[in-house]
Amino acid sequence: MDALIDKLKGEIIEQLNLEDVKKEDINNDAPLFGDGLGLDSIDALELIVLLEKNYGIKVANPQDGKKIFQSIRTMAEYIQANQK
């Protein structure tokens, strides 16, 4: 799990162009949207692309993103549960 979380942080920073953010700045349980990393609706869509591209997981309904992308940890858990 920790390895996946670490990898995911790197991928998110790259995919979302969070140039000023370092891996250690991202708290595993802090909210990704709103106050946390300050991500917005386009970032949420971009994270859906990331799941499909890097992990082969399709999220059909963007509304599901709200639950999946609560924090880095929930995202990693979702990947573990859904990866084939």
């Binding site: 162009n17 386009i42 970032d43 869509l45 971009e46 692309v49 499909e52």
Partner: peptide
């Protein structure tokens, strides 16, 4: 095939 919403906008 991975169109990027962040690019498309």
């Amino acid at each position: 095939y991975f169109p990027s919403p962040a690019n498309f906008v």
